[in-house]
Computed example of a mutant assay.
Amino acid sequence: MPEVSDTAPDFTLPRDGGGDVTLSALRGAPVVLFFYPKDNTPGCTKESIGFSESAQAFADAGAQVLGISKDSVASHDKFVAKQNLSIPLLSDEHTTTCEDYGVWGEKKMYGKTFMGITRATFLIDADGKIAKIWPKVKVDGHVDEVLAAVKAL
């Protein structure tokens, strides 16, 4: 996992609704990257709705919010439509970006071991450096905590 003050690993990923997003093209303003395990699961839905509901507050603070999971663009499109989400969701089907950010690895649930994404959030400053990391995110209160950190930049 990269550390605070490291340059954020660059990527270009497809997004819901079509097109690609390149992280380095967003320099000049803060970016919030939240990695989540799966579309339409309870925690991921709650987190995505939370960031969507606060999208204007993040924009007012000058920051862009991007969600990233291994789900396909088609899955993201359905998730966005079903939950009325307003933040871009990026598809990392090959897990390259997840691996670069150290969020792809072995997980355990109900006695089974599998590979998956650990919920984590990265705040990247206007210069492309990692300003703050939230590893192993608990959803409740997380969006407000991230917004406060953006405002403190």
Rank of each mutant, 00 (worst) to 15 (best):
H94C: 10
G67C: 08
E145M: 13
S75C: 05
A148T: 14
A120L: 03
D127M: 03
F122A: 00
T96C: 05
V80Y: 03
P88R: 01
G62T: 07
P88E: 06
D92S: 09
T96F: 09
D100S: 13
V32G: 02
I49T: 09
I117F: 07
P30S: 04
L66D: 01
E99N: 11
T45P: 13
G17R: 12
A152E: 14
T41G: 02
F35I: 02
S72H: 07
V31C: 11
W104M: 12
C98W: 09
K46C: 04
T96A: 11
F11Y: 10
S24G: 06
Y110A: 08
L123A: 03
L90C: 03
V150I: 09
S24M: 10
A8D: 08
D127Q: 10
T12D: 08
T7R: 15
T45D: 04
D60Y: 13
F122D: 01
P30G: 07
A29H: 14
L123E: 00
V143F: 06
K82V: 12
D127W: 06
A74N: 12
G18W: 09
E93T: 14
L153E: 11
C98V: 00
A29W: 01
L89Y: 03
G17A: 06
L66K: 01
W104G: 02
Y36W: 15
V4A: 06
E106Q: 13
Q83S: 13
Q64A: 11
N84F: 02
Q64H: 10
V4I: 13
P42W: 06
M1V: 08
G128A: 09
L153I: 10
K151T: 05
M1P: 11
F122E: 00
L90E: 01
E53I: 04
D92A: 09
D20C: 07
T113H: 12
C44G: 06
V80G: 00
E3D: 15
T41N: 12
V139A: 05
L123G: 05
P42K: 12
A81F: 07
M1S: 15
I117T: 15
E47V: 05
T41A: 13
K108E: 15
T41C: 10
E99C: 02
K70A: 12
G67F: 01
R27Q: 15
P30L: 08
P14W: 02
W104T: 05
E145T: 14
G141P: 15
D60L: 06
A29K: 15
G18L: 06
L123I: 11
H76N: 11
A131W: 08
V21Q: 02
I49Y: 01
A63E: 12
I133S: 00
A61Q: 14
K38F: 04
P2G: 11
T41F: 12
L90I: 02
G62Q: 10
Q83L: 03
M115E: 13
V150E: 05
V137H: 08
G19C: 14
G50W: 02
T22W: 12
I124A: 03
E93F: 09
T96N: 13
V73P: 15
D144L: 07
L66Q: 05
H142W: 10
D140T: 15
A63K: 02
V143G: 00
E93S: 15
